[in-house]
């Protein structure tokens, strides 16, 4: 087995440096840890489209000019931006989740898992941040462009879809990429309600093995890599979408 010997070689070499990665040679703990990485990546891949979708939705409400749409979304955005995500998560999981359970007649009928709540809370939190960035972008779209679109018969929604969002997306892309990097970091709060992402999986390993430093080195490298990739893709999209002569 090529893979097994490589792992053994790695464990032996890091052992010589005084680092304890022995758990990698065992089946069970290594599996938990690998699943932790996979869960975190899965969360990130799922959360990016969810947050963008709701971000556009919120931004549309914020710029609609209709008070009954604006007020609740504005309230939600302000509360979300100014309270810790962990508190929102605990509130959702301990209060809303229990409420849903009672409504459906017992926790065994409740289909909402901790994973769902992490996606919902972190997704909506980052969506609120996106919405603020997009709102600024939409307000920066020249009024003459919007008027021209209205002049050739675009409806309010069509203007949003074909004129405002494409331009606003370009101007607010740096802020959105920043929010996405924040999103990658926020996935760790899932740890609080036993979603087995990488920090949760690592706790499982280091309580057995007492090798916090070793795991920390890998986790820090992992998040640096993830954020590096997100930032790189953001830069690439920014270059691809750049409109000559428009924006900064």
């Amino acid at each position: 087995m090529q893979n097994g010997t490589l792992t053994e070689l790695f464990v032996r070499w890091t052992g010589k440096l005084g680092l304890n990665y022995e758990f990698l040679a065992t089946g069970y703990e290594a599996q938990i840890w690998r699943d932790g990485f996979v869960t975190t990546i899965y969360l990130v891949l799922l959360l990016i489209p969810v947050s963008l979708l709701f971000g556009v939705l919120f931004a549309a409400c914020l710029t609609s000019g209709k008070p009954w749409l604006l007020a609740p979304v504005r309230a939600f955005v302000e509360i979300t931006r100014n309270t810790p995500t962990l508190v929102q998560l605990m509130f959702s999981f301990l209060a809303l989740n229990t409420f849903v359970s009672n409504l459906l007649g017992g926790a065994q009928h409740n289909p909402l898992t901790p994973f769902f709540w992490v996606v919902a809370v972190v997704g909506l939190h980052v969506a609120a941040l996106h919405a603020e960035a997009l709102r600024a972008g939409i307000e920066a779209v020249p009024a003459s462009l919007v008027e021209a679109a209205r002049g050739i018969g675009f409806s309010r929604l069509e203007i949003l879809r074909y004129v405002e969002v494409p331009l606003a997306f370009r101007t607010s892309l740096p802020a959105i990429v920043n929010n996405l990097i924040n999103l990658v970091k926020l996935t760790t709060v899932g740890n609080a309600i036993a979603v087995s992402e990488i920090t949760y999986a690592s706790i499982m390993v280091w309580t057995q093995r007492d090798n916090v430093v070793e795991l920390m080195l890998v986790i820090l490298a992992f998040f640096s890599l993830l954020n590096f990739i997100v930032a790189r893709i953001g830069k690439w999209v920014e270059r691809r979408l750049a409109v000559p002569g428009y924006g900064i």
Binding site: V184, K185, T188, T199, V212, I219, F228
Partner: peptide, 14 residues
């Protein structure tokens, strides 16, 4: 680039 939670865990356990 590191999550705050990871750093709090790091200082607490190390």
């Amino acid at each position: 680039n590191a999550p705050h939670l990871v750093l709090i865990f790091a200082t607490t356990y190390i």
